[in-house]
């Protein structure tokens, strides 16, 4: 998270500086667009955070590691994809979590399924996705991501 934040803020700051030097008029437009999109997006992000907070309160990460660590086979892959789809865990935390999962005995296949569905499917951010793209898009993207997670997991499981 810290690296993310530093790189992004530096990039944007430099770009904003260049923008300001090149045209003050356009830069005020930049700020205006930014502000409008902030007002539009903030409520959905706050809803997302509330959902994530409640979820994390009830399903702590170490519980998941315990639970998935004992699973195996294709049913384990399905289960890992399902849990990954519902939960929100930042990618930075998910890799060490998956590493500990594999250490506890889960297969690499399950680890891959978990990471892919965790990152690609956003149950918690669905309000925002629906707002920006509509229900049809959201449902299709999330279902196909679920299938993709299983396919990627099986391929990695077979090849590794």
């Amino acid at each position: 998270m810290a690296i993310d934040f530093i790189i992004l803020n530096l990039l944007v700051l430099v770009a904003l500086g260049i923008s300001f030097f090149k045209s003050k008029e356009k830069t005020s437009k930049v700020v205006k667009i930014a502000f409008n999109s902030l007002v539009n997006t903030v409520p959905y992000i706050m809803i997302t955070i509330v959902i994530i907070g409640i979820m994390q309160g009830f399903i702590p990460n170490n519980l998941i590691a315990e639970y998935l660590g004992e699973k195996s086979g294709i049913s384990g892959v399905l289960l890992a994809s399902l849990i990954g789809a519902i939960l929100y865990i930042p990618a930075f935390v998910s890799f060490p979590l998956v590493a500990s999962l594999i250490e506890k005995g889960a297969s690499v296949m399950i680890g891959a399924a978990f990471i892919t569905s965790l990152t690609m499917i956003g149950f918690t951010s669905m309000p925002l996705e629906i707002k920006e793209f509509g229900i049809k898009f959201t449902v299709l993207r999330n279902i196909s991501s679920f299938i993709a997670a299983i396919v990627i997991a099986v391929i990695i499981g077979v090849l590794l």
């Binding site: 998270m1 993310d4 934040f5 992004l8 803020n9 990039l11 944007v12 770009a15 904003l16 923008s19 356009k26 830069t27 437009k29 930049v30 700020v31 205006k32 667009i33 930014a34 502000f35 999109s37 902030l38 997006t41 903030v42 992000i45 955070i49 994530i52 907070g53």
Partner: peptide, 21 residues
């Protein structure tokens, strides 16, 4: 997560603004 959002959201919005303008 709220703090994470506060740290990153201004930049993401400015990014959208830069892109838009």
């Amino acid at each position: 997560y709220f703090i994470e959002m506060l740290l990153i959201i201004p930049s993401v919005m400015l990014f959208i603004g830069l892109f838009g303008a």
